[in-house]
């Protein structure tokens, strides 16, 4: 019995410590809302009033006036692709931000003639600190922001545009696609400028492809004119659009999964009936020893 009690106590302590870790320890995963670090999404969500959602459900409610930001680092299944296609055709705006993920799967499913190159696009000259952070100075007039000077990318790729789409932003002539992976230009490597953002109309909606999702992480969103650039891209969908970020295709660490689960539990418990039930259970558990003692009062 004593051993049993010891094991039970240890289990309770472990659970308590685990729960505290889940609640208090910050996420460090890319694009996580709960990550306040350089690679989190908290700043973007706060400043743009965007919601983090899982899947297309939220945006599907009203495609017109909605912007769905998708970062496809995990593959889509057929059903999801069909829902995205329907969302765009019904008037929604898909802001597809990808560099080395599964963006081409989405573009292909939507029948668009453009591809993410999948090779690093580097610029040793027009860049921030080193060739991996190219500055995009060639911004289309259709973005309509005269004071916007340049956007800054972070380990981006380029868009290979084969169809008649609007080119929204291009890199400088000193940029190049790093074919051989040595991060240095050589004469066999094609030089820029390369397309980094393009827009295609599809049905009643549109698809805006951007070859770098890092624009929206905390350390990038307020760099250079990235915020204005993103605002302009989003405003192509109209005045004050409803912006959602789909995290269903972002890999999550177990800690983040547990955090989300905990948030779900909290949401359920936050309901009044659940709170009453919880209070009742606590009262019962607390008062049970007292009742037992009460039963034992009096002569045997």
């Amino acid at each position: 019995m004593r051993t049993l009690r010891l094991v039970a106590a240890a289990l309770v302590i472990v659970l308590l410590v685990s729960w505290l870790s889940v609640v208090l320890y910050p996420s460090v995963k890319d694009f996580m809302e709960a990550n306040p670090g350089w690679n989190g999404l908290s700043d973007f969500l706060g400043e743009f009033g965007a919601e983090l959602v899982t899947g297309v459900d939220q945006a599907e409610l009203r495609p017109e006036g909605s912007v769905l930001i998708a970062i496809p680092y995990l593959p889509y299944d057929e059903g999801e692709l069909r829902r995205i296609e329907r969302f765009v055709h019904d008037g929604g705006t898909l802001l597809l931000m990808d560099d080395y993920g599964y963006g081409n799967q989405v573009l292909q499913a939507l029948g668009l003639q453009m591809q993410f190159a999948g090779l690093p696009m580097l610029d040793p000259y027009v860049t921030y600190r080193n060739q991996w952070f190219p500055l995009v100075t060639d911004l289309a007039p259709s973005l309509g922001q005269p004071r916007m000077q340049y956007a800054m990318l972070n380990y981006a790729t380029a868009l290979i545009v084969l169809g008649p789409y609007d080119i929204l932003a291009s890199s400088s002539p000193t940029s190049f696609l790093d074919n051989n992976g040595d991060a240095d230009w050589n004469r066999a490597e094609p030089r820029g400028p390369f397309v980094v953002a393009a827009r295609a109309t599809l049905g009643s909606g549109m698809v805006i492809a951007v070859s770098d999702p890092s624009l929206i992480i905390n350390s990038m969103v307020n760099r250079a004119d990235n915020k204005a650039f993103l605002q302009q891209l989003i405003s192509l969908a109209g005045e004050n659009p409803y912006v959602v970020v789909d995290d269903s295709h972002l890999p999550q660490a177990p800690l983040d999964i547990l955090k989300y689960s905990w948030q779900g539990v909290r949401a359920r418990v936050a309901v009044p009936y659940s709170q009453v039930l919880l209070v009742g259970i606590i009262l019962v558990l607390t008062l049970m020893p007292v009742w037992r003692k009460g039963n034992e009062v009096g002569p045997r």
């Binding site: 460090v28 890319d30 040793p124 600190r129 380990y155 760099r223 890999p251 800690l255």
Partner: peptide, 26 residues
């Protein structure tokens, strides 16, 4: 266990990167 699962994506913190100048491009 949560820590090693951080930042597997291809980008870096701009603040932490080193400078590198390229003469060929100049």
């Amino acid at each position: 266990g949560a820590a090693p699962l951080a930042a597997l994506m291809p980008h870096r913190d701009p603040e932490g990167v080193s400078r590198r100048y390229d003469a060929v491009s100049v």
